[in-house]
Design a protein around this nucleic acid. Structure first.
Length: 229
DNA sequence: GCGACAG
DNA sequence: ATCTTGTCGC
């Protein structure tokens, strides 16, 4: 797919904040999805050479049957450190490289990290979504900001995630008895719909299949194929 | 000033 | 994220 860059990536944190504040004004948290969703994608990031090289893997699955239809991997020098609140500046460049290689344009992208559940309402899912102009959902494994009420242990239960008196996402139990995930709108999607897709893309494990498949193909890079068991 | 802090 | 085996528990 074709990607239109919106800004430079070699930035100071001050410049990064300015970009977050500017682009956050473009985030849409209403449903602006295609009438019928055919493809959902997941991204996985990894680092090599002691963090000097970033690796992004994308998996595109059919929806709702969740079968892998395309994958891609991209590598590039890591140009930004990991700083809570600025994850997108470290990971998005390589993700864009991987997305650019795709033949299929995903209808929704599930990201590893927060959407609007962010100090400036502009987590990695928002940043990626605004740049590629595709609906995105943030599905994080841990909390960045916000508080919530106790969550029931049953799969499918959720509680709103509140930050500064506002609902910025939800804590969602994707598997009974397992640690919950944090779901928030990235771009062009509402919270209820984001929760819905996050759950529909999650079958047997805590994380969405999209993310898990991307992780699987990334780890299998350059290795001799092994018979599954 | 003192903690908290996605991956 | 990454370094890493076996082990505790449902």
């Amino acid at each position: 797919m074709k990607i239109n860059q919106r800004h430079e990536w070699s930035l100071s944190t001050e410049q990064a904040i300015a970009i977050q504040e500017q682009l956050s004004g473009e985030v849409i948290t209403d449903d602006e999805l295609k009438p019928n969703i055919e493809y959902v994608a997941g991204v996985d990031m990894g680092f090599e050479e002691n963090g000097a090289v970033s690796r992004a893997a994308v998996a595109v699955l059919s929806y709702p049957d969740l079968q892998v239809v395309e994958t891609s991997i991209a590598y590039r020098p890591t140009a930004f450190p990991y700083i809570p609140g600025f994850l997108s500046f470290r990971e998005v460049p390589a993700v864009l490289d991987a997305l650019e290689k795709l033949q299929i344009t995903p209808d929704i992208i599930l990201c590893d990290g927060q959407g609007i559940a962010h100090p400036r309402r502009f987590g990695i899912a928002c940043h990626l979504g605004v740049i590629v102009d595709i609906p995105t959902i943030g599905v994080a494994k841990s909390l960045l900001v916000g508080k919530h009420q106790p969550l029931a242990d049953v799969k499918g239960s959720w509680q709103p995630l509140i930050y500064k008196k506002q609902t910025v996402g939800a804590v969602v139990r994707t598997r009974t008895g397992v640690k919950p995930v944090y779901v928030s709108p990235g771009h062009r999607i509402s919270l209820p719909t984001a929760i819905d897709y996050a759950l529909c893309c999650t079958t047997k494990y805590r994380l969405p299949e999209t993310t898990r498949i991307a992780d699987r193909i990334a780890s299998a890079r350059g290795e001799v194929s092994i018979v599954e068991s």
